[in-house]
Write a protein that binds this DNA or RNA. Structure first.
Lengths: 115, 115
DNA sequence: CGCGCACTTACGCAATTCTTCAAGTCGTAC
DNA sequence: GTACGACTTGAAGAATTGCGTAAGTGCGCG
């Protein structure tokens, strides 16, 4: 395909690039949730959540269905769960590196002062 | 840790949410590249590339080192390669779904017209 | 030293994304 | 039918991000 695939990738990652949307995907990868349930676990306004859900829907990552008086959401691409997990690993690595660096700097600074 | 991990995740994904940055990571996961080499493969202005590299550096995903008259970059977190691969899988899935949906709609529309 | 190459930083403007408020839809229950 | 709860949509302003031009840094070489 001559179409820029890395463009699609960037778009995909951008849709993951929001705390509320990450939170939604994490909750939904445990089990399906109604909107008001999501709302209990994510501290934002209903309308805002709805907008973020719309973003995820447009990206094709979640699906909605009506059931009784409420709307249920589910992840439509199961691999997302794996992705979130590997992201967690990477982030731990990066954060750990940063802590080490910070500690080194702190130690060096202390050594400098004491000398 | 009481610190919102999903916040860090969102930030992480946002740094991946740019075509040039994706491109850089893909090129760097093949082998280390000098900036001017990256420039050959990425059609943007030097200063722009530099900015994107700075973003990746701040996120701790790449490292730079000077060698001769040029600056070499390398990925500092090897797992990124895996992440890009699983992203590709997911995207293929999502895009395929969309094509199906589009086809269905087209078929339905055609059926509607012919009736 | 001084020039040029390879790259980076500053800065201002355009474009995108986020957030909130207000209004609207859809089903259910009274 | 109308009132209410559960959501969604629209629109507008604030906040971020992206990009180009221009200016700067650092090195190696004649």
């Amino acid at each position: 395909m001559a179409v820029p695939l890395y463009q699609a990738k960037a778009e995909f990652f951008r849709t993951l690039g929001h705390p509320a949307r990450i939170r939604v995907l994490e909750l939904l990868s445990e089990r399906d949730h109604a909107v008001h349930e999501l709302l209990d676990g994510i501290d934002i306004e209903p309308s805002n959540l709805s907008q973020q859900l719309a973003v995820l829907r447009r990206a094709g990552l979640v699906e909605q269905r009506r059931e009784g008086g409420q709307v249920l959401y589910s992840v439509s691409v199961p691999e997302v769960r794996d992705l979130l997990l590997s992201a967690r690993v990477i982030i731990r690595g990066v954060l750990a590196d940063r802590v080490e660096l910070r500690d080194e700097l702190a130690t060096a600074a202390a050594a400098g002062r004491s000398r």
